[in-house]
Nucleic acid binder design. Sequence first.
DNA 1: CCACGGATTGGCT
DNA 2: GCCAATCCGTGGA
Length: 203
Amino acid sequence: MNPDFYVKKLKRNFYTRDLQIVAKELLGKILVKKDGKAILSGKIVEVEAYDGDIDEASHAFTGKTERTKIMFNEGGYFYVYFTYGAHYCCNVVTGKKGRGTAVLIRAIEPVEGISSMSKNRFGNMIDEKDKIKLTNGPGKVCKAFGISKEHYGVDLTGENIFILNMPKIKDDEIVITKRVGIKKSMDLAWRYYIKNNPYVSKK
DNA sequence: CCACGGATTGGCT
DNA sequence: GCCAATCCGTGGA
């Protein structure tokens, strides 16, 4: 699908940088999950940044707890949480150890393993017209990729779940808005998505 | 110990 | 557009 020279796994030093930079640069990168022989992958098209220090909407805002402790690790780990009694959401931990920052992956454009994603989401193969519904939301991404609590704390520099490097999306192709679905710190414009991408969850 | 409510989704009015 | 579903982490008693 892509020339080999830029398709390679992101290393620790990508993730340990500043939250907002990592959030923005995650756009266009390819999330990969290996399930035995099966490979699920997709392009990250929408993210949100959460900062435990100054952001009341962040789960890390109240400090380190059993649920949030992975966010205080150095960047490059997976923070998976369960919400509304039904859905998992996945985040990429960023920054230096002790910072409590993470990037929520809100939407993905499927690349490989579309039939597996269909089964995970709907229990069977879907019509082409429904492909858009596979991964256009944070809960949907986790369902499609089969991500749940067992993936809490996974090291993204490992072999099971990782992200492939891709060329940076240009600034004029990135839309920056306020975040979605939160009731605190609503003024912060920490949501980033790829302009005109059909898999973005909301306009 | 117990009550509250959520970084959502999908179905119904 | 509105709202119920449905766990469980969190915080107050």
